[in-house]
Design a protein around this nucleic acid. Structure first.
Length: 293
DNA sequence: TTACGGTGGCGTATGATCGC
DNA sequence: GCGATCATACGCCACCGTAA
């Protein structure tokens, strides 16, 4: 077995690679349809965000898109979102990228949270108009005397702390009141999904992943040995004490690179363990048009 | 000419299931 | 309860026809 230690952004991921191919160990099965925001799905989303690095020149932006009093089902809403994203992308097709998250309000109305990178400057009113044009008029806001476009919220993300704040508050938010079960074990409130029985498909996704601002990556692969791995885990427990013996783990820390550095220097020297492979890639910064934010 | 939405095919995020 | 792995449901994207 090999141990893969990976540092990127604020993520430290330690995983185990088995020597025996897993294919030989398991029997085949058919996966079911997507019914909700599972704990694993949430972890994948959090890990993805942790791998990013927020740089002002990429104009990271947080955007919320909603519907009026009447609202469509999730499939139709996704169609609206996709048309909206296509319109945005046409304004900067090469570098535009985003992470989207579908959420249901208590009234079962779908709405979207987006983290956008490299979006050209567009006035809030224009964005609201774009979204209104992508949804049909029946979903506009008729609650006031005059008909209004559906509500949209746009805000610049100025640093990684702000991004984490958004992610925990909106993108991967927890709700302690949710019932037991796999889908709710992540803390997500599935009540609206289950009662609506309309939810189909994924609840988050990435547009133009290749252009996301991933932080530099540092990866070290070493053959497993109980001696060094136990000591390595003890070191990592200084960051987070919840790591279990001999298992893989992941944790979020401001400087995960110091862990891979110590591993590839001190541990290798102390325990005389050969490194199987070592990769250090620097952050890719993409060109972008200036923005008045 | 440009912007738009629809669509087919490929790639990947997901659920199922395993061992630990 | 966790991480690892795999098959596959469905998202992503290039391309196309249509409308203005």
């Amino acid at each position: 077995m090999k141990i893969i230690v990976e540092a990127q952004g604020t993520l430290l991921k330690v995983s185990q690679k088995l020597d025996v191919p897993y294919r030989e160990q398991r029997r085949t099965s058919t996966r079911g349809a997507i019914k909700g925001f599972s704990a694993k799905s949430r972890i994948r989303l959090l890990q993805l965000v942790a791998r990013l690095r927020i740089i002002k020149k990429l104009h990271p932006t947080f955007l919320t898109l909603t519907y009026g009093k009447t609202f469509p089902d999730c499939q139709t809403a996704k169609k609206h979102l996709w048309n909206f994203i296509k319109r945005l992308r046409r304004r900067s097709p090469e570098v535009f990228s985003c992470i989207w998250r579908l959420e249901l309000q208590d009234r079962n109305a779908p709405h979207f949270h987006l983290i956008i990178f490299n979006m050209p400057f567009i006035h809030k009113a224009t964005i609201q108009k774009l979204w209104a044009e992508c949804v049909s008029e029946q979903y506009w806001d008729y609650s006031a005397e005059e008909v209004r476009y559906p509500f949209t919220r746009i805000e610049a993300i100025r640093n990684h702390k702000k991004l984490c704040c958004y992610v925990s508050k909106y993108i991967a938010k927890k709700d302690d009141a949710s019932p037991e079960g796999d889908a709710s074990s992540c803390g997500f409130n599935n009540e609206p999904y289950l009662s609506a029985q309309k939810i189909t498909g994924r609840l988050w996704g990435v547009i133009n992943k290749a252009m996301l601002p991933f932080a530099k990556i540092s990866q070290v692969v070493i053959d497993y040995d109980k001696k060094w791995y136990r000591e390595f885990q003890d070191m990592c427990r200084q960051i987070w004490n919840g790591i279990e013996d001999d298992s893989g783990f992941h944790l979020y820390t401001s400087n995960p690179y110091s862990v891979t550095y110590i591993l590839s220097k001190r541990f290798v020297e102390k325990f005389k363990i050969p490194i199987v492979s070592e990769v250090h890639e620097s952050l890719r910064i993409l060109p972008c048009e200036p923005c008045p934010f």
